[in-house]
Design a binder for these strands. Structure first.
Lengths: 190, 190
DNA sequence: GCAAGAAAACTAATATCATTAGCTTTAAAT
DNA sequence: ATTTAAAGCTAATGATATTAGTTTTCTTGC
């Protein structure tokens, strides 16, 4: 019936991510985005109810890719808690370095609005929790996972924002603090 | 010589913070900010070279208040590393809860631009590092401090963004992961 | 083949901002 | 009183998100 479709939600989100990473979030206007897709700005409204919703879709996809990468990293790691946790941490950090702008945007929702429901999003994180359970036991696995994610997210955020300006090997520092965190939970579990 | 001064950089920043916390960053326009100060928008340009610079001033002040609060918390705590580190962590988290929106904005600089110089900013953090040195020794104090700040910042960020939606006592979880982190460094130092 | 219909994109118009240029008011100093 | 300069104001500009209404082009039923 239609007319040669030129864009889809997926291509829009992909181009938006590309432009955001390349030129920064401030430079992303609907006009520029549409131009990158050989289309005019109002056409985007057929797929998204405005810029805010579009950016939320970018966030949702970023989050999906991240969680999938983490689960995959755990699967591929050696079958020991430490190796798996270190793989998780390393993969997380590598992801943030690869998509620094869209990653940072992931945690800047001052307005809760439309966030994916708990069931769907949180279930995807269960493989990560299983790894922590191997370290801390079931009962402590949720707090331990939250702590690990906080540590890793916090580190890459500070790093990406240039808060570590007094030198030092940031790769090595990262490895050491992750190790310290793991040690801390083992201690209380021995 | 002049004319009754109605605004100063300080009153502008204070009102900006107030509005940002009350209505969210998206609602802050120079027009609304100026109206809150009984002034017209262009008048703000006498004090700040545009909105971006004004928001950077808000960030600078937020950062100052935070670091001052942390140093003060350490001074007031019992003279033991653990008590001081826990005071630091607790105060940090309380600050983020008190100013959730302006706190979040502190670490969303995709464009480095005008950031305070290393000397001034980083020196103010030395009292914090001294506390960590008591736990880990001088040599490890910088990585340990970075780890602690990463952990605490990461935790409050995830918390404020509604990433911890599977229940649990978030106060208690926070206390536990900070404790685990401290234990981890002690372990490697014994 | 051809006409109808609807999907997909377009043009034009509007409202909100940030920002700039240039003008006006007021108070202090002579 | 007059001058002067600071501090704020009005008016204009340009960018952008969004809305309304129009045009294009493919498919489908005759």
């Amino acid at each position: 019936m239609p007319y040669p479709t030129q864009i889809t939600p997926e291509t829009i989100v992909a181009k938006a991510r590309e432009l955001i990473e390349a030129e920064g979030i401030d430079q992303l206007s609907l006009g520029r985005l549409a131009a990158g897709l050989n289309v005019k700005a109002p056409s985007l409204y057929r797929y998204f109810n405005g810029k805010a919703e579009l950016l939320r879709a970018v966030n949702a996809e970023t989050s999906d890719i991240l969680i999938t990468s983490l689960s995959e990293a755990i699967r591929s790691a050696a079958p020991h808690e430490r190796a798996q946790i270190e793989a998780l941490a390393h993969t997380y950090r590598a992801f943030a370095h690869k998509y620094p702008v869209t990653y940072s945007r992931l945690f800047t929702n001052t307005t809760p609005e439309l966030r994916p429901d708990v069931p769907e999003t949180e279930l995807s994180v269960l493989p990560l929790q299983a790894v922590m359970a191997a370290l801390t036991g079931e009962a402590d696995s949720l707090p331990a996972l939250r702590g690990l994610l906080a540590l890793v997210h916090g580190y890459v955020t500070l790093e990406l924002n240039g808060q570590f300006r007094r030198g030092g090997d940031l790769d090595q520092t990262f490895a050491r603090i992750v190790e310290a965190f793991i040690n801390g939970w083992q201690l209380s579990n021995d």
